[in-house]
Design a protein around this nucleic acid. Structure first.
Lengths: 212, 212
DNA sequence: TAGATTGTTAATCGATTAACAATC
DNA sequence: TAGATTGTTAATCGATTAACAATC
């Protein structure tokens, strides 16, 4: 059923949005929808939607549109939400804490299994059902549990050391909230960056632009 | 000195990174640097760096390189970090709380002036030197203080109503942590989206890809 | 001056959009 | 069948990269 083995990253980055949209449509009882309809509702071109969905083809019917539920399932399958990747969180500051408490990792194809921090005030306390471990236990834990991904919420200056240790331990994926350029320094890894400061500066810039 | 009035968004999105990098170089006492050197350190092509910096030209010298400090100042000026935009935060849940506590708005060209929430348990409590106000006071506050930007950390279902009220009150910029598509529903506004769930799903996908 | 490096134009690459034949 | 809508190819657009003349 899958047509292209390599789907381009811009397409992949749109999939979570399609996924959410299709779920909403299902809940409204919509069973099928045309690319034209979807384009109006999502603010994309119908052409782009057809191109995107065609990457893993077979869900549209000429003259009729796309079957909502099969399409939803297929996107979930492509994103791999049912196969869960174990992830650990390093740095339980304000942001790390918020992420650990609020995100529904299970629904997103991940499972949060451990929290680490250096602060004696935090170590041993519970957050979202997990006990914060001392960062010194990173090696022991990873050697035993072999997590493949880490969520990095430490201060920028701590990042290079932590990433080095984690890559040695076999961690290949990072959800990176620091400004340390993981992908550049560790070519074998996969890093998704969340640069909150950069994003806010861009908003600041765009607001100050005379005409948009 | 400014050469292009319209700098493309991809270039703008790279500016915060240049800005940080140049600050680091200054702190190391580096006074000038060539695009080739910078390209090695930042993992961009020298060509792209020259194209980018040339949008607001005049900081390079042939045979010599770029003056670090003037370039740093100019990027700060373009991003408008010294002119501060007033911003209010709606929704002091885990993420909103973390943002309010941790981000240094001042350094990023913004000033956080008020927090709003619906929860009686939160209203009246202090976060980062600000008292959480009831969301019902949004209109009164905005009519008086006329903030131009809002940081949206409410649940998705609350977003359409809040955004509608805020745009009526003259708020034109949103730092959007919800999945509500503000730019699509309110064409006049500027929205920077932080879609944490989407980002995590993309990481999950990339980790599960056979070869990268 | 010679060497280095920019500023800028041209070439390439990739993603988006348009068009339309295929087909439900 | 006629109408609608996809799948897919071709055209367009924009961003990145390469090349090199200008010049410090």
């Amino acid at each position: 059923m899958v047509k292209k083995t390599d789907i381009s990253l811009p397409v992949i980055r749109r999939l979570p949005r399609y996924y959410r949209f299709l779920r909403d449509l299902m809940q409204e009882g919509v069973t099928h929808i045309s690319s034209a309809d979807l384009s109006r509702q999502m603010g994309l071109t119908a052409s782009q939607i057809r191109q995107d969905l065609n990457c893993f083809g077979g869900f549209g019917q000429q003259g009729y549109g796309y079957q909502v539920e099969p399409l939803y399932r297929e996107i979930g399958r492509i994103l791999g939400v049912q196969r869960r990747t174990e992830v650990i969180l390093i740095g339980v500051g304000h942001v790390g804490h918020a992420i650990a408490r609020q995100m529904d990792f299970t629904r997103l194809g991940m499972r949060l299994t451990a929290l680490f921090d250096v602060s004696p005030a935090l170590i041993g306390t519970q957050v979202g059902g997990l006990t914060i471990r001392p960062e010194t236990e990173l090696e022991a834990f990873c050697l035993e549990k072999k997590p493949k991904a880490a969520l990095l919420c430490v201060p920028d200056r701590a990042a290079p050391d932590i990433v080095e240790r984690l890559t040695v331990l076999g961690v290949t994926g990072f959800w990176n909230f620091t400004h340390y350029d993981i992908a550049h320094h560790h070519p074998g890894t996969v890093a998704e960056n969340v640069h909150l400061e950069d994003s806010l500066m861009v908003l600041s810039y765009r607001l100050k632009q005379p005409r948009r």
